[in-house]
């Protein structure tokens, strides 16, 4: 979804939420403006929740802390949706009694009572399945695993890959300093490298040398966000952020209506795939974006 489209959805929602009387609202949405993915998620939320039943607080605003404290202490909200890790931290800081749904937040591998999550990660099997369609015949996959954040052990990951028909090489890397060395370990052994969401290994500082190294070693990277693909990953498999927002809003409505199923986590329902055509050309590979309806960045 384009930035303009997201803005067109978010702005009326915010306007409606702000100007409508507080007594009719029941869902508090806390987000951070300026991040495209969050804007898409908030757009999805506002497309599901009836107008006037939710209020959006922007953590980037100067009055956000006061507004958030006032809203939570009044107790008029029955559910809060935190979009993004900063919004979740702001909500957690007030220890709300009401249930909180975290959207667009990475799984930190520790549960918290009362916290529900719509997962941001696309499961490894789903990613491998998408890659099978995107690049048929390439079954050698690699994963850079950060032992501190990984949910799965290497053998678990290999088992999951085998079930999808892939051979998987897992190399542990616990520091950005060893990232390029670890990547070099895949050279000639795998067809592509899956990059699982990990802010410690993949960030603005490491992305450029990582991509350069992938080009050097002809190791196409499969990223976890559109920004990663734009920054040089050959392809990207990531949730549909608008749908994550819709999923979160539907969960909130169920909580308001007392129809909660008791789950603490839901996986994203819809996956988007993107291809950086320039990088694939540089690496001399040919993907098939049409086969999976992937977005193509030229």
């Amino acid at each position: 979804m384009s930035r303009l489209g997201v803005t067109a959805l978010v702005v009326p929602a915010v306007f409606a939420a702000v100007v409508l009387p507080a007594s009719r609202t029941s869902v508090l949405v806390v987000s951070e403006s300026g991040v495209d993915a969050y804007n898409e998620a908030v757009g999805g939320i506002s497309s599901v929740l009836p107008a006037g039943t939710f209020r959006v607080i922007d953590t980037a605003a100067k009055t956000s802390d006061r507004d958030l404290r006032g809203a939570l202490e009044d107790g008029e909200y029955r559910v809060a949706i935190a979009v993004g890790s900063r919004a979740l931290a702001a909500v957690r800081a007030h220890h709300p009694a009401e249930p909180v749904i975290a959207a667009m937040v990475l799984d930190e591998n520790h549960e918290e009572p009362g916290l529900r999550r719509v997962a941001l990660e696309v499961h490894v099997t789903a990613q491998l399945a998408a890659m099978r369609s995107l690049w048929p015949g390439r079954t050698r996959a690699g994963i850079l695993r950060n032992p501190a954040l990984a949910r799965y052990a290497p053998d678990q990951l290999e088992s999951l890959a085998r079930k999808e028909g892939f051979s998987l090489l897992v190399i542990d890397c616990d520091s950005p300093a060893r990232l390029l060395t670890a990547l070099g370990g895949f050279k000639g052994k795998v067809d592509f490298v899956l990059c699982l969401p990990d802010p410690e290994l993949y960030n603005a500082v490491t992305i450029k040398p990582l991509v350069m190294a992938s080009l050097e070693h002809r190791l196409p990277l499969v990223g976890f966000s559109p920004a990663f693909v734009r920054a040089g990953a050959a392809a990207g498999i990531f949730p549909d952020y608008g749908d994550v927002g819709r999923q979160s809003a539907e969960w909130a409505l169920r909580l308001v209506r007392g129809e909660d199923r008791g789950a603490e986590k839901e996986s994203p329902r819809k996956v988007r795939i993107a291809v950086n055509q320039r990088v694939t050309r540089l690496e001399g590979i040919e993907l098939h974006p049409d086969a999976v309806g992937a977005e193509v960045y030229r």
Binding site: K208, V211, M212, A227, R230, A231, G232, N276, Q277, R278, V279, L282, Y297, R298
Partner: peptide, 11 residues
């Protein structure tokens, strides 16, 4: 250089 190399117009 890098942004042009990988086509990152946002960058």
């Amino acid at each position: 250089q890098f942004a042009m190399l990988v086509g990152d117009r946002a960058e």
